[in-house]
Amino acid sequence: MRTGSYSRRIVISRIMECVIFFFAFISLLPLTLILFYLAKKGMAAIDWQFLTHLPRPVGEEGGGVVNAIVGSAILIFCATLMAVPLGVGAGLYLSEAKEGKLSYWTRVAVDILQGSPSIVMGVVVYLWVVKPMQSFSALSGSIALAIMMLPMVIYSTEETLKAIPCTLKEAALALGVPYYRTILKVVIPAGMSGITTGVLIGVARIAGETAPLLFTAFGSPFLDINPLKPVAALPLVVFNYATSPYPQWWEQAWGASLVLTFLVLCLHLTAKIGTRRWKIQF
């Protein structure tokens, strides 16, 4: 009787184990499928011309997405330029002034920002920048992306700097080094790898963002580096082409998707390897 129920319990345990493993493995199916389609259809669309030429009008063969690649690069670069100083500064403040009203409310603000939908940033930046300037622009797109990136930079800076032993800071202070130099020359360099990783993950996130760009960067068929003009971006191209009625554009959308995914995954990979490689031993 006892042994009978015991073996039954073992069997139940086994079955549940199988169920868990089954569901866990099934959830990798979509990933495999997505990568499969991206590889198959994307490869077919990508060639040298695709990467180096401007788009052609519907009906004409060929054409590429170089404007979107350059546009994405500009947007990401400008967004990083805006988000990193502000984010590192705010993260530094949070790590130094752990308690206090300002820290508390700043943390709440960052939490809110981290959780808010990207489309909302698009709407707000539209109201802040596009409407007053009466034009879609690369500038507004970068601002929207910078806001998306900010929480990640702040979190990673705060976490990294908090983990740096306090004695390191005191070692510098005890040598008669002023506080600001201690932070800039000892604390930040010691946290450099963590902060860089955070920035890379942030960049990876905004590189694929489409929603905040819909009414800011807007997209453009030209190669234009004027920050006050609309600009193309890879995710926008994927969206616009995929939802267009032209099969020829669909193919191009697969190509652009593959380029975009490749870019994003490379960034993630760099961040991951970097975390291990650049780790500083205290």
């Binding site: 004695t167 005191e170 510098a172 080094v177 010691a190 450099m192 500083i280 205290f282």
Partner: peptide, 28 residues
């Protein structure tokens, strides 16, 4: 007045050489 702490805390980003002259370098 110099100080040495309970746990050794050389600057992790600096070489031995730079650690020794850290007081000068960090002070510019």
């Amino acid at each position: 007045i110099g100080m040495v702490f309970q746990r050794p805390n050389p600057f992790p980003t600096m070489s031995i050489y730079d650690n020794v002259i850290a007081g000068y370098k960090l002070n510019g």
